[in-house]
């Protein structure tokens, strides 16, 4: 029974804490997400959004708590490439001499042999992924020559090629063109129908209302978590952003 319960959650983070050299970045954070759910991660700069992602990808070690991915440990989840991470634009060196194809192929590395020589299936997966983000004609272009939106789509394609069941997206809508924004929102709907679980951080409150079934408000720890319609209230947002008026954050329409 307990086992079955575990299985039904894609992400299960229980009371996790992360500290960097004695400074607490995140404490007692909880999150449970099922297949097909899209959750928005909202908080100020420095509130621990990237730290949360880092903990879920295993890039930093948690000092307390427990993370289960599909009911398994993080190490096993990494082996199955269960989690894909789409970095925010500032998180990568855009002048690195690799092409769109190279980057998307990196999504397949986890399941390749030690020399990372692509099989027919890997090549097909990369082709399909590049096609889904509509970058086929740019596939041999160095990423340094792409626009911000095209680069964002490249990393999305990498996540698609990886065939992960969980997608973590750090600021997916920051600095992208309208065409990319539309394409990403269409992809989100497709991912949801495919049963993928999505956790995305964003500064844009409108996007949260538009896409997210659930919202997780954090400020070093969880301020509020639940259905967007219930939790995404001006009061909760105010306390997440340290007493700032939600009018400033949401604009006059709310």
């Amino acid at each position: 029974m307990d086992k079955h319960n575990y299985k039904s959650y894609r992400i299960e983070a229980e009371n996790i804490c992360v500290d960097y050299h004695g400074k607490v970045a995140l404490y007692d954070a909880n999150l449970r997400l099922k297949a097909g759910q899209i959750c928005g991660l909202v908080g100020m700069n420095g509130a621990g959004k990237t730290t949360f992602f880092n903990a879920l990808t295993g890039f930093v070690n948690i000092s307390k708590g427990k993370i289960r991915i599909n009911g398994e440990s993080l190490r096993i989840a990494q082996k199955y490439q269960a989690i894909a991470y789409v970095p925010q634009s500032e998180g990568i060196d855009s002048q690195f001499p690799v092409s769109v194809w190279d980057v998307v192929m990196m999504g397949r590395y986890g399941s390749m042999n030690i020399l990372r020589s692509p099989r027919e299936s890997d090549i097909q997966a990369v082709k399909d992924a590049i096609d889904r983000v509509d970058l086929m004609e740019l596939s041999s272009t160095p990423i340094g020559n792409l626009s911000g939106g095209q680069r964002k789509r490249t990393f999305l394609a990498r996540a698609i090629a990886q065939r992960a069941s969980i997608l973590l997206l750090d600021e997916p809508f920051a600095g992208v063109d309208i065409r990319t924004e539309k394409l990403i929102s269409e992809l989100f709907i497709q991912f949801k129908n495919e049963g993928k679980t999505i956790l995305l951080s964003t500064h844009d409150m409108i996007h949260v209302r538009e896409f997210c079934d659930l919202v997780l408000l954090i400020n070093k720890t969880v301020v509020a978590y639940g259905e967007t319609s219930e939790v995404f209230t001006p009061e909760n947002i105010t306390s997440t952003f340290g007493g700032m008026s939600p009018d400033v954050l949401l604009g006059p329409e709310s």
């Binding site: 880092n54 990808t57 295993g58 890039f59 190490r75 990494q78 082996k79 490439q81 989690i83 894909a84 991470y85 970095p87 998180g91 990568i92 060196d93 690195f96 690799v98 990196m106 999504g107 590395y109 986890g110 030690i114 020399l115 990372r116 990498r158 990886q162």
Partner: peptide, 20 residues
């Protein structure tokens, strides 16, 4: 031998970690 892994490590160590 580790050419592709090293390129990935220099480029995006977080992704490398994520895929094990």
């Amino acid at each position: 031998v580790f050419r592709k892994d090293l390129i990935l490590y220099c480029f995006d160590p977080r992704h490398a970690k994520t895929v094990g």
